[in-house]
């Protein structure tokens, strides 16, 4: 009797927990960014994900492989707020708990600096001389209050930029 009760209600409880748990991971896809040859070593460009997040993609070497590139996310590794680039201080700043990061995304101050956390990087790959980035394809509707997007369609081609401005 007890075993029966345990088994039936237990199974229902496990199913209920599983029901509340997300059914699938966040959808991601590889998106085309630019031709590898179009980004000179030392140069960078601003890429906008389908959800609107701005990603600074910088080329740091000229081996011609994907390892030349880094794509910094602007999501703070501490508790998930959005960092922004402060050009006067040459750093990324996170307003939530005063986290700071240098140009390469390494934590330099605040809780993420103390914990040695860096800004996360998006996975990149190059195929046939073309650079691709793996980004989430689902996102919330962006609020009207946000600054106007720079009007560039990620599928048509990137804007070539100069600095790590996010």
């Amino acid at each position: 009797m007890l075993a029966g009760l345990g088994a039936s209600y237990g199974t229902a409880a496990v199913y209920a927990t599983r029901y509340l748990y997300p059914a699938r991971p966040r959808a991601k896809a590889w998106m085309y960014v630019a031709r590898v040859a179009d980004i000179a070593p030392g140069g960078s460009l601003n890429y906008t994900t389908p959800g609107g997040e701005k990603v600074a993609i910088a080329r740091q070497a000229q081996s011609g492989t994907v390892d030349d590139f880094v794509a910094l996310s602007s999501t703070c590794p501490h508790l998930g707020c959005q960092v922004h680039w402060e050009s006067q201080n040459e750093r990324f700043f996170c307003p939530c708990h005063n986290g700071t990061f240098d140009k390469s995304g390494k934590g330099t101050g605040g809780p993420p600096g103390d914990a040695g956390q860096s800004l996360p990087r998006y996975p990149l790959k190059s195929e046939g001389g073309l650079l691709y980035i793996e980004v989430p394809t689902e996102s919330l509707e962006v609020a009207d209050a946000s600054p106007p997007r720079d009007g560039h369609d990620p599928c048509l081609g990137p804007h070539l930029g100069d600095g790590a401005r996010v």
Binding site: G52, P95, H97, L140, A145
Partner: peptide, 30 residues
């Protein structure tokens, strides 16, 4: 201001009863 998932406002504070926890989070690693 309405939520904007792309921009955290420059100055952000929770309700007063979470100030303690908020300050604590700034003082130590996560």
């Amino acid at each position: 201001p309405k939520a904007d998932p792309l921009t955290t406002p420059e100055v952000i504070k929770p309700e007063w009863f979470f100030y303690v926890a908020f300050r604590w989070l700034k003082l130590f690693t996560g």
